[in-house]
Amino acid sequence: GATAVSEWTEYKTADGKTYYYNNRTEESTWEKPQELK
C-alpha cells in the first residue's frame, strides 16, 4: 500500500514525558499509535 504521512506528531510534556497528538482527529495519547510501530 501507499505510505501515508502519519497524522501523529510526537510531543514532550514539561516533565519530559512523550505523548502523541493526531492532527486529523485531535486525539492525544500516551501510547505509541499503531501507525508509528
Rank of each mutant, 00 (worst) to 15 (best):
G1R: 00
G1N: 13
G1Y: 10
G1M: 13
G1W: 12
G1K: 03
G1P: 13
G1E: 14
A2Q: 14
A2G: 14
A2N: 14
A2T: 12
A2E: 14
A2M: 12
A2R: 01
T3P: 14
T3D: 13
T3W: 10
T3G: 13
A4M: 14
A4Y: 08
A4W: 13
A4S: 14
A4T: 13
V5P: 12
V5N: 12
V5R: 03
V5S: 12
V5Y: 12
V5E: 13
V5D: 12
S6N: 13
S6L: 11
S6V: 09
S6Q: 11
S6P: 12
S6F: 07
S6Y: 09
E7I: 08
E7L: 06
E7F: 09
E7C: 04
W8T: 00
W8M: 00
W8P: 01
W8E: 01
T9L: 09
T9M: 11
T9R: 10
E10A: 10
E10V: 10
E10H: 02
E10I: 09
E10D: 03
E10L: 05
Y11V: 14
Y11S: 05
Y11L: 15
Y11W: 07
K12G: 03
K12M: 12
K12N: 06
K12Q: 12
K12F: 09
K12E: 07
K12L: 11
K12Y: 10
K12R: 11
K12I: 14
T13H: 04
T13G: 11
T13M: 06
T13K: 03
T13A: 07
T13F: 04
A14N: 09
A14V: 10
A14T: 11
A14Y: 02
D15A: 06
D15N: 08
D15Y: 06
D15G: 07
D15Q: 05
D15I: 02
D15M: 04
D15S: 09
G16A: 01
G16V: 00
G16R: 00
G16K: 00
G16S: 01
G16E: 03
G16L: 02
K17F: 07
K17V: 10
K17R: 13
K17N: 08
K17Q: 12
K17C: 09
T18D: 05
T18H: 07
T18P: 06
T18A: 07
T18L: 10
T18R: 03
Y19N: 03
Y19E: 04
Y19A: 05
Y19D: 02
Y19S: 02
Y20M: 00
Y20T: 00
Y20K: 00
Y20N: 00
Y20V: 00
Y20E: 02
Y20D: 02
Y20S: 00
Y20G: 00
Y21N: 03
Y21W: 08
Y21P: 03
Y21T: 05
N22V: 00
N22G: 00
N22D: 02
N22K: 00
N22S: 03
N22M: 00
N22I: 00
N23Y: 11
N23Q: 11
N23F: 09
N23R: 08
N23M: 10
N23V: 10
N23H: 15
N23T: 13
N23P: 08
R24A: 11
R24F: 15
R24D: 09
R24I: 15
T25D: 02
T25I: 02
T25M: 02
T25W: 02
T25G: 02
T25Y: 02
T25Q: 02
T25A: 01
E27D: 05
E27H: 04
E27W: 02
E27F: 04
E27K: 06
E27M: 07
E27V: 08
E27R: 04
E27N: 04
E27Q: 10
S28T: 15
S28I: 15
S28L: 15
S28W: 15
S28F: 15
S28R: 14
S28Q: 12
T29Q: 10
T29S: 10
T29H: 06
T29V: 13
T29L: 08
T29K: 06
W30N: 08
W30T: 11
W30D: 07
W30R: 04
W30V: 08
E31R: 04
E31M: 07
E31P: 02
E31F: 08
K32D: 05
K32F: 05
K32I: 10
P33W: 01
P33D: 03
P33G: 02
P33T: 01
P33F: 03
P33L: 01
P33Y: 02
Q34G: 11
Q34F: 11
Q34E: 15
Q34I: 12
E35H: 06
E35T: 06
E35A: 11
E35I: 06
E35S: 11
E35W: 06
L36E: 08
L36V: 05
L36A: 04
L36Q: 05
L36Y: 13
L36D: 08
K37I: 15
K37A: 14
K37H: 15
K37L: 15
K37E: 15
K37S: 15
K37Q: 15
K37T: 15
